[in-house]
């Protein structure tokens, strides 16, 4: 290759680039989507939230002309990936798919550079993760009330497993203990699977973890009560705390898709419409159900209200926790 001609063509390219830069941004909205959409998942591949993204990408194949690419950016309990989307170009090609509850509680617990409501707008809710109170199968406590009685008799003596402080399972567990004036020693594990293994091996007395974690573990783990107002779509024989009339705070985690705040309204509306269609496909529903979690679609306004309610509901627990820290 001739050196001069290379530089000439490079110079032409750069000039052309600069000229079309402003025009390009304007043109994109008309033809959205014209290139692959990056769906950032702030957790490792293979996890529960990742499964939603993969199912979404599979469901999108028949509906959208461009591919949906799942990008795993784990770190800081999901905040690393969230921040990368918040600062990305707001053109609708970089979206965040995350566990809304964990995201919200993490930003409330730690000094965080991103805020769920300020830096993002909701595209839609596509799923729901719920947590449940579980005990080992050989546990002497056969119901939530028996466990509460034991906790009252031995304050601070019993131990419970969870997937890490800052996750919504932990906050839900803490909120349950607070609402019933109970104390117990928590043992944090790194992720849901190690916590479940510790519970299965009866290394702790009880635990709070995702309801889907109990599937296939019937011999080793008994879920006692679900942290929700309504029963789970798949594990239908597990009663809710509400049915049992046990005080609790409804902390779950909607799986949400979000876009940077400045994304154009018509692009978000278009994306929302796609997501509504995809979540209605059988491909998506089947893939999600096999994971043991639930598909649940909701409009942006609905999910935003849900998250705001959850923030209000969990503020007392969080203040109590952060107060304890300082």
């Amino acid at each position: 290759m001739q050196l001069t001609s290379f530089f000439k063509s490079a110079a032409t390219l750069i000039t052309a680039t600069c000229l079309s830069l402003s025009a390009a941004t304007a043109a994109q909205a008309d033809t959205f989507p014209s290139r692959p959409i990056n769906l950032v998942v702030p957790f490792n591949a293979g996890g529960g939230v990742d499964a939603y993204a993969r199912a979404l990408a599979a469901g999108a194949r028949d509906l959208i002309d461009v591919p949906v690419v799942v990008v795993n950016k784990p770190g800081a309990g999901g905040l690393t990936g969230a921040q990368s989307v918040a600062t990305a170009r707001p053109d609708g090609y970089t979206l965040l798919l995350t566990s809304g509850g964990s995201f919200l509680l993490n930003t409330m617990l730690n000094a965080s550079p991103v805020d769920m409501f300020e830096n993002f707008q909701f595209v839609s809710q596509i799923g729901q993760l719920s947590t449940a109170l579980m005990v080992p199968a050989n546990s002497p406590y056969k119901s939530a009330n028996e466990l509460i009685a034991a906790l009252q008799e031995n304050p601070g003596k019993l131990r419970w497993a969870h997937s890490g402080r800052g996750g919504f399972h932990y906050i839900a567990g803490r909120a349950f203990l607070e609402s019933n004036n109970l104390t117990a020693q928590d043992v944090p594990f790194k992720g849901g699977s190690p916590a479940r293994a510790a519970l299965a091996g009866a290394q702790t007395d009880f635990g709070f973890m995702g309801i889907q974690q109990a599937r296939g573990f019937g011999e080793l783990i008994h879920p006692l009560a679900l942290v929700a107002d309504e029963r789970d779509g798949i594990m239908q024989d597990i009663p809710t705390f509400k049915e049992l009339n046990i005080p609790f705070v409804n902390i779950g985690s909607p799986v949400v898709v979000m876009a940077p705040t400045k994304t154009a309204a018509d692009v978000v509306a278009q994306l929302n419409q796609y997501l509504e269609q995809i979540t209605a496909t059988t491909t998506f529903a089947e893939l999600i159900e096999k994971q043991g979690t639930a598909a649940l679609y909701a409009q942006p306004a609905v999910i935003e209200q849900k998250m705001l309610d959850m923030r209000t509901a969990s503020t007392p627990v969080i203040t109590q926790l952060t107060g304890q820290v300082q």
Partner: peptide, 10 residues
């Protein structure tokens, strides 16, 4: 500063 792929696809 400069995103070539976005420009190439237009």
């Amino acid at each position: 500063v400069l995103d070539i792929r976005a420009l190439l696809s237009n």
